[in-house]
Write a protein that binds this DNA or RNA. Sequence first.
DNA 1: CGCGTTTGACCAGCGC
DNA 2: GCGCTGGTCAAACGCG
Length: 309
Amino acid sequence: MEDKEGSNPGAEFTSDSSWTLSGGGPDSVSNSVNYFFDGESSILSEFGWDLPTDHEFGRFVELDRTEARLELAGNFSGSQSCAAADDVARCSVSGTASNPGGTADVSTSNPSVSSSSSEDPPEKSTGCGGKPPEIPSKVRKKGQKRIRQPRFAFMTKSEVDHLEDGYRWRKYGQKAVKNSPFPRSYYRCTNSKCIVKKRVERSSEDPTIVITTYEGQHCHHSVAFPRGGLISHEAACGGQLTPAVSQFYHPGVQLHREIPLSITQSQSQAHQAPIDVGGSRSEPEPTTSKPPTDEGLLGDIVPPGMRNR
DNA sequence: CGCGTTTGACCAGCGC
DNA sequence: GCGCTGGTCAAACGCG
């Protein structure tokens, strides 16, 4: 097709006009699984995703929901990333935050910041944790402002656009993105009570990079994989919320099989819970034996039978 | 038949 | 005020 431009200097990837990520450019990308990961562990934990900060995976960038479109405060580049990320993190956390599990320890540490999130109406709870915050469809139409949930994005080197993360998603839209030859896909958690959404797009810089942006937080357990059968997420929803994404299983990247294992930190409890981590869950493929080489980590992914469809 | 994807249209927010 | 762009809807369609 037409990859129109390499316009980007290479240092930063800009997906929408609104946010910028930068890990060092396409080149560095290849060898850098370490896209980023600065102080984001806090962010992740906010979302219930605990990952070893030093783990190489992809960069998590929390996008915040400020007034209207500012999705990411500041751009991440070099050392700034830390600060920036940190800022964002604190900022958003406080607001709606999210952790249905209820633990927004990390960033909340900065109470003052919380105000920054200002605008979000208290009522706006994320996910089914509170109640269907989002006015369904057209009803929302006029007057109502789009409510943004805390979000964060991460980049993953993958061949497949839609990476399995243990949840089931339904695509509800696709749109061409400006400055990018690749379309952006919009997904929504299939759990009727869960309002988590995610956007998936490819980096115009490096087509092998998939940028996934999550918005909101799951209020139910992962469903493992379609084939494996669903887990009573409904129940989870109705009942008490759980540390949402109890695990960060990113099938798109084989290595993640290990993640759950190493993840166990603050939420280790959760991980050990019955629901267990996706990694340990009944995942289909046997690819385990694959040595997580750098290449393997982000390079070869595409779990054989992971795609549900 | 149920569920998920595709796709064109519509709407909201933002920048100029 | 206007145009652009992102985000969402929903009908149509495909697949198992």
